[in-house]
Simulated assay, not measured.
Amino acid sequence: MAANAEFVSYIKEQLAPLGFLSSGSFFGGQAINYHGHQFAWVIGSTLYLRVNDITRPDFEAAGAQPFKYNTKKGKITVRKFYTAPEFLLDDPEQLLSWSRRAIEATSES
């Protein structure tokens, strides 16, 4: 599923205070990078943020799910990217805070 262009624009606008961001196509969606490190990803109208072992429990506690996709051999779960908890989309300060943590999580790759 392609990224919803209007949603991508909205997310980029909300994340602009982070500073230097770039984006590009990634796995059928739109990757969002901070200084060349992918910390966010939009597929359709869903925002995914990068997690690590420290932040994953917070995402899970907020009801976020890891990215999953189907192959001929079965379902694949990508535990490096989780859906952004819904409340973040209505709270720009929290979205920035969780996005900063997602940026920090990219240092482990």
Rank of each mutant, 00 (worst) to 15 (best):
Q94G: 04
T83F: 05
A62P: 05
A16K: 15
A84M: 04
Y10L: 08
T46D: 10
E6D: 13
W41P: 13
S23F: 15
W41I: 09
I11P: 13
L96T: 12
A5V: 09
L21C: 13
G44N: 09
V42R: 11
A40G: 15
M1Q: 10
R101I: 09
L49Y: 03
F67R: 03
T83S: 07
Y69P: 01
H35R: 11
G29P: 09
P92L: 02
Q65R: 13
G19N: 11
T83D: 01
S23K: 07
N4M: 05
V78F: 07
Y10S: 15
A3F: 07
K12V: 05
A61H: 07
P66I: 01
E13I: 03
S9F: 05
M1L: 13
F67I: 00
W98Y: 12
F59C: 13
E86Q: 03
N52A: 09
P17F: 11
P57M: 03
E86T: 03
T46L: 02
L18H: 06
N70C: 01
Y69D: 02
Y69H: 04
Y69N: 00
K80R: 15
F20P: 06
G28R: 04
L96P: 07
L89C: 02
F67K: 01
L49A: 01
K80G: 14
T83L: 03
F87H: 06
G36S: 09
Y48Q: 00
R101E: 14
Y34L: 03
I43C: 05
D53G: 13
G36M: 05
